[in-house]
């Protein structure tokens, strides 16, 4: 026989899923969130997202010296997620600097996709919060103007419900759930976030343990230690789940594959840890919100969590610790 055959190690068939298809699924999951952001915050939200995604993709393509700017899709995901954690109408240069920092400091300096330790979008946010805090803290938040696409939302500003108890008592749980409150672009609508999260769960890209552990812990701590200021203890727990970035963080940031544990037990520990730190910052820290630092801190100990939670193999004996 003269024909040359491919000889390689089994298995000889592979699933059609690729890094690109996974990233595309994440983009699809973010679609309802992005749509809600535009409905609530108008054209400025759309502009912020477009600038952020374009910057992230271009910076990554330039760094990797590749012409294919979409590539594996991970830069687009980082860019979109970074936009989601910005105020509705930030200055354009802040978006550019932050998105570029996400890609370069958050990802490429570690060796690119798969090697980064911290969630790239959150690194970008940490950079701008530390450098230009005035644009993302205090009474800079624009209240949403539903269905007013062309309005300048930045004309009026307020504080977020988490930063100001008076503001918190003024919003109903329904509005918190739908997202009709001041806050970051993508964090306000629990409804849209849950829709996208359900899609990611259906596609098998996220495990219940991280969001479950995270949201569960936030609820419990909010109910137990939140002071019950929001119509009683249980409602206060629910308020802490729906207000601020917990839903966005738990469903899209903490579940980032690269920077979270791979073991089932590790994922649960990671989720609970994120919840604990978030609530400690919110309740006892000097910042109104703690999602960014909670996830970044847990990212740092992800390898340790993985090391200590190696699953028992099939038929393995229980270790007497």
């Amino acid at each position: 026989m003269d024909k040359k055959l491919v000889v390689s190690s089994s298995p000889h068939i592979r699933s059609i899923e690729s890094v690109q298809s996974v990233m595309t699924d994440v983009l699809i999951a973010l679609f309802p969130v992005a749509l809600m952001a535009v409905l609530l915050f108008g054209y400025q939200a759309l502009l912020t997202m477009v600038i952020s995604v374009a910057t992230a993709m271009l910076v990554e393509a330039a760094w990797l010296r590749k012409r294919d700017i979409f590539g594996d899709g991970s830069a687009a995901v980082t860019g979109l997620l970074f936009a989601m954690i910005l105020p509705p109408a930030p200055p354009w240069w802040l978006v550019v600097v932050g998105a570029a920092a996400s890609i370069i400091i958050g990802k490429q300096v570690f060796g690119g996709i798969g090697y980064n330790i911290f969630n790239p979008a959150l690194v970008g946010r940490a950079v701008i919060v530390m450098s230009w805090g005035g644009h993302v803290a205090g009474r800079v938040w624009s209240p949403p103007q539903p269905f007013a696409f062309g309005a300048d939302v930045s004309a009026v500003t307020t504080a977020t419900p988490l930063a100001d108890q008076g503001e918190a008592l003024a919003v109903s749980l329904t509005n918190l759930f739908i997202g009709n409150v001041a806050g970051c672009l993508g964090e306000t609508s629990a409804l849209a976030l849950l829709l996208g999260g359900a899609w990611l769960y259906y596609k098998g890209h996220i495990d219940w343990r991280i969001p479950g552990g995270y949201i569960g812990t936030v609820f419990l701590m909010g109910a137990l230690f939140g002071g019950g200021f929001y119509n009683g203890h249980l409602m206060t727990g629910l308020f802490h789940v729906l207000a601020g970035g917990v839903m966005l963080g738990a469903l899209y940031m903490a579940t980032d594959m690269v920077t979270s544990p791979v073991t089932p037990k590790g994922k649960l520990i990671f989720g609970i840890g994120c919840g604990l730190i978030t609530m400690m910052i919110r309740l006892y820290g000097s910042l109104p919100e703690g999602v960014t630092y909670a996830i970044l801190l847990m990212n740092a100990i992800t390898p340790i969590i993985d090391n200590y939670t190696v699953p028992r193999q099939f038929g393995g004996v229980k270790k007497n610790a």
Binding site: V19, V22, D72, G111, G114, G204, V258, T259, V262, K267
Partner: peptide
């Protein structure tokens, strides 16, 4: 390509 730690 590099592992993205998806845990699949």
């Amino acid at each position: 390509s590099p592992c993205i730690r998806c845990a699949k």
